[in-house]
Computed example of a mutant assay.
Amino acid sequence: MTHSMKLSTAAIDSVKDEDEEEEESNLDYFYDDPGTPPGTLDVEADDPPPEMVLIDYNDGMATRLKLTTPEECAPYLDTHSVSWLDILGLGNQDTWERMAKVFNLHPIALEDVVNVPQRPKVVEYDDQLVIVAWMVTLKPGEDPLHKEQVSIILGKNYLLTVQEEAEYDCLQPVRDRIRYNQGIIRKQGVDYLAYAILDAIIDGFFPVLEEYGDILEELEDEVVFNPVPKNLAKIYSIRRDLFTLRRAIWAQREAINVLIRDGSDLISPEVRVYLRDCYDHTILVRDMVETYRELSSDLMGIYMSSMSNKMNEIMKLLTVISTIFIPLTFVAGVYGMNFNPDTSPLNMPELNWYWGYPVCLTLMFIIALALFFFFWRRGWFNSVSHPEDEKASTR
């Protein structure tokens, strides 16, 4: 292994160790400290309250209200309409204690909603169904993948959704369908609303994966035609993000399968059919993630091969140049020997000849041309080309 290849391997190991450490630190689930009582919330008392929006609708109307306290939505819970309380932000402990009283939330359910991140799952209580999902979106910056937990609490006539942040959201199409009465969402019950939200979360994976597919395609061209050490950081960054996507979609696939297989009194058989379509989408997302992970793994081998080929091209060109100058150096060395022709028994030929210097230079030039022509006839210059020429020839 050459010195440059050793440096490349060391750079790979360094980038890999750093990315694995960052991956482990960013992907850990939430866990309670040993001895913590169940239902302990990991929020501060002085945090600002979350943004709460109530969307109450039926087949004939839809109302949207911004609430300041959880108690304001209590009159809508006993009606025959569907009440969707959309909570943006985790808020403070006082808000959630009041929320638990209004909606009769179990302490363990409240803990799963507030203490993030939790593993995507489905937990059934007496009159409620808690669904934990992961939503992924793209944001500008060096690390574009943004993930956050979306918790869904499904009741008889109401539904709560809790998001960590309000800046990145993929549920706006569901709100628009309710607002403009598109499709059948306002003709269905609250279980169909839960399906629509889950379907929007799963479908949010597709534009993210399309973006990573374009990035991998561009990175493949860079690795093949112009490999540079910074490609390593890009490869491992993509692998880390794909690992996050894989981890999210695998758990959500299991959660949706639980809804279909085990069933619940809160989910009708008609909506269970729609959930099967949502489950198929998770399978498609999983296949895409696995394909991109395999492609990102292959990029490392392509990078090493490209670097090796690049080094071979450089060494071949230097070897050809050195070989051409070897006989020229021999001739120059012979005539550079410091012997006096008058005292030497064997005089060096043409040393004192008037045309000796130009004839020697001409001879060296002819030897160089002859070697160049010989190498060209053997085809040794055919593989020495520019990356731009190789890229143009593949189109």
Score class of each variant (00 low, 15 high):
334 V>E: 01
362 T>W: 05
116 V>P: 04
256 I>D: 03
105 L>V: 08
187 K>Y: 10
135 M>V: 06
205 F>W: 06
121 K>P: 08
314 I>A: 05
49 P>E: 12
377 R>I: 01
144 P>Y: 09
75 P>F: 10
387 P>Y: 06
1 M>K: 05
333 G>V: 03
256 I>L: 15
126 D>G: 04
302 I>E: 00
117 P>Y: 11
319 T>S: 15
117 P>K: 06
81 S>G: 10
83 S>A: 15
229 P>A: 04
101 K>Q: 15
43 V>A: 11
276 R>S: 08
64 R>N: 06
95 T>K: 01
365 F>K: 00
19 D>F: 14
18 E>V: 10
39 G>R: 03
140 P>L: 05
325 F>V: 01
13 D>S: 10
78 D>W: 03
151 S>H: 07
69 T>W: 07
326 I>Q: 01
27 L>Y: 05
229 P>D: 05
251 A>M: 13
363 L>V: 14
34 P>F: 05
291 T>R: 03
43 V>T: 11
250 W>P: 00
9 T>Q: 13
238 I>F: 10
372 F>P: 02
297 S>Q: 14
309 N>L: 08
62 A>T: 09
390 E>P: 02
84 W>T: 02
151 S>A: 14
289 V>M: 01
352 N>C: 01
303 Y>N: 02
70 P>M: 05
113 V>Y: 04
16 K>D: 14
65 L>D: 10
139 K>R: 14
23 E>P: 00
132 V>K: 02
91 G>I: 09
324 I>H: 00
46 D>W: 04
112 D>Q: 08
351 L>W: 05
273 V>C: 00
43 V>W: 04
128 Q>I: 02
172 Q>G: 08
213 G>E: 14
287 D>V: 08
221 D>W: 07
127 D>A: 12
262 D>E: 15
18 E>T: 11
189 G>M: 11
349 P>M: 03
90 L>P: 10
28 D>Q: 15
66 K>S: 13
55 I>A: 01
345 P>F: 06
96 W>E: 02
237 S>A: 12
30 F>E: 04
222 E>P: 00
157 N>A: 11
188 Q>Y: 06
385 S>A: 14
9 T>K: 09
172 Q>V: 15
268 S>T: 12
132 V>F: 08
349 P>K: 00
303 Y>P: 08
218 E>S: 13
116 V>Q: 14
178 I>Q: 06
254 E>D: 15
233 A>F: 13
362 T>A: 15
165 E>L: 12
156 K>F: 11
293 R>K: 12
385 S>L: 13
75 P>D: 09
189 G>Y: 06
330 F>H: 04
235 I>T: 07
206 F>M: 12
252 Q>V: 03
329 T>R: 00
47 D>L: 11
131 I>D: 06
354 Y>D: 09
187 K>N: 14
216 L>Q: 04
161 T>Y: 11
251 A>H: 08
57 Y>I: 07
380 W>G: 02
116 V>H: 07
334 V>G: 03
9 T>D: 08
135 M>N: 03
352 N>P: 02
45 A>V: 13
216 L>D: 04
43 V>F: 10
352 N>F: 02
362 T>Y: 02
153 I>P: 07
249 I>R: 00
130 V>I: 13
113 V>N: 00
141 G>L: 09
69 T>R: 15
68 T>Y: 08
239 R>K: 14
208 V>T: 05
384 V>G: 02
352 N>D: 15
215 I>W: 07
102 V>R: 08
375 F>L: 09
154 L>R: 09
71 E>S: 11
236 Y>V: 05
